[in-house]
Structures are given as C-alpha cells and as structure tokens.
C-alpha cells in the first residue's frame, strides 16, 4: 500500500484561486451583459407608480402586462396611436427579402470572383471593398433623388433595394473569403467533369457553404431588422419598421414619460433578433470559427 503522500495515479484536482477568480470574472461580466435586459423586463412589468417609488432592480410586486398591451396596440407615434403592431409585419417584410437577396447575390458574387476570374474581376472586387467603407451619409441625398426619379422612394421595393445594395458588398466579401479557402482542385475537378457556371455553383459550392450561409443570414437578418437610418428615410409611412416606430414612441411622449411602455416597446422590437440569436448562436459561432472570417 502506497502512503498518501506518495504521488500516484492522476493528480488530485482542486479548485485553485485562479480558477475561482476566473469564474468571478465570468459572473461579473455576465451580470454586466444581463442586468440591462433584466431591468428592461422588470420595468416593463411594473405600473408607473411602482417605477416612480420603487427600486430599479426590484422585481415588480404584481407583474402586469398592461404596458406591453399598450406598447403593442395603442401607444402613440405622433398622431397615430397603433403601437408597435404595424411595425412587426413591416420589419419582417423588409428583413426577409433584405436577407435573401443579399445572401444569394453575395454567394454568387463571391463564387464568381473566387473561381471565374473574368476580365475586370479584380477591379470589381476592389470597388466592393471600398464601398463597404464608405459612410452611408455620402449617398443619402443622391439616393433620395434617384429613388424618387425611379418612383421607388417610400415604397417597400425601394427599401428592400436599398438594403440589398448596401449590404451586398459585405456579403460578397464574406463569401469570397470563404470560397478563397476552398481548394482550387475541387473547382477544377468539377470543370473537368463538365460543370458550367451554374451547375458547379448549385451542386458543388452551395452544399459546402452551410457555415458561411448561417453567418451571413444571421448578420443580414439582424442587421436589416435593426436598421434605423434607412427605414427612417426610405421606408415611407406605410412601411415603417419597428426601430423607427420605437424611436417615435419613445421620443414623442409629452408630459411624464411612460417608462414601462417604452421598455415593453423596446423589448418587442428586440424580441425577434434575440430569438434568432438564441436559436442559432451556436452555429453562428461555429460558422465564424469555420473560416467565415479567415483571410
């Protein structure tokens, strides 16, 4: 029998101070990221009286959905009092095509730029690179003029077009970087087998693109959903997305601010992107690790 002091077998595990410090840091960081969300939820469930007198961090004594109902259906944006409800549909109407078009076109572009080095491809690529950097403010006025001239200003197709155009450079870059890491032999083999531009894309490239498609879809969808600037200028009265309605509700109240309604409205507008992250965050992270951001 070996004595207890004699090291033998696996080293006994103990919780070192460094390990404890690590978990403390993680817990504090989690608190920093969670607390604002908690406060939002708690506030949205309180009546105004409790907000005025109670503590910000206290859980509501009698949680009520009254503020949520008002935020959804009757809160006023200027003269209209329909709450956030019209915005939800509008946001979907903008964000879904605003995701599909740039992702599909971006994949095609990235593929064309990586494998079909047609004359001028480098020039196009550089132009795309530059345009991701250009501040949107540079284009706003000429865009307004062009959209008006084309009869698209303030319309749904108009705002979708704007989203597609301005995010296309980014999705193209994402896909190009991804395809740049695909072995050239794979493409050459498909060419030898008689594949053309479209068939190689559909049968060779699309099936291997899952990680980057996930990253691009999540980025695009949350980006389009969260956009404020384009929605405010180009969407028009009929198609205002939730972010625009939210700002109007929050800034257009007179007299005492209804913080509970504001918080409920905020949560309503954040619900969809949050759900997207909770549902697919794991794949998003994997997609980024799998090379979406290499090169």
């Amino acid at each position: 029998m070996i004595s207890h002091l004699e090291p033998d077998g696996p080293k006994p595990r103990s919780l070192s101070p460094a390990r404890i410090a690590l978990y403390v840091f993680l817990a504090l960081s989690a608190a920093f990221f969670l607390l604002p969300v908690y406060v939002m939820v708690a506030t949205s469930l309180k009546p105004m009286a409790e907000i005025r007198d109670g503590n910000l961090f206290a859980w509501p004594q009698a949680p009520t959905l009254a503020a949520w109902a008002k935020a959804w259906g009757t809160a006023c944006t200027g003269r209209v009092c329909e709450g956030m409800s019209p915005g939800m549909v509008n946001s979907f109407k903008i964000a879904i095509p605003g995701t599909l078009f740039p992702v599909i076109l971006g994949a095609l572009n990235g593929y064309a730029l990586s494998f079909w080095r047609f004359r001028g491809a480098n020039w196009v690529f550089t132009a795309l690179l530059v345009s991701t950097f250009v501040p949107i403010q540079v284009f706003i006025f000429p865009l307004v003029r062009m959209m008006t001239a084309a009869g698209l200003f303030g319309s749904l197709p108009g705002i979708i077009l704007i989203h597609t155009g301005f995010t296309l450079p980014l999705t193209t870059l994402l896909f190009r970087n991804f395809y740049a890491a695909v072995p050239e032999e794979m493409f050459s083999a498909a060419r030898v087998d008689g594949g053309g531009f479209w068939s190689i894309f559909a049968f060779v490239m699309v099936p291997i693109s899952t990680p980057i498609v996930i990253v691009a879809v999540i980025l695009q969808f949350t980006g389009a959903w969260n956009d404020y600037l384009f929605g405010m200028i180009f969407a028009g009265r009929e198609n205002q997305p939730m972010t625009v309605l939210l700002t109007s509700i929050v800034t257009s109240q007179y007299g005492e601010k209804e913080y509970n309604v504001n918080m409920a409205a905020t949560l309503l507008s954040a619900a969809v992107p949050l759900a997207v992250y909770f549902a697919s965050g794991r794949w998003f992270v994997r997609g980024i690790s799998d090379g979406a951001l290499k090169g």
Partner: peptide, 12 residues
C-alpha cells in the same frame, strides 16, 4: 494510474 520518476524524484 501509476507513477513517473525523473532522477530520484517522484514527479507524477
């Protein structure tokens, strides 16, 4: 399981 010795020391 087992032990590793280096020199005359048990370094497991």
């Amino acid at each position: 399981a087992g032990q590793i010795w280096i020199g005359d020391q048990n370094v497991t």
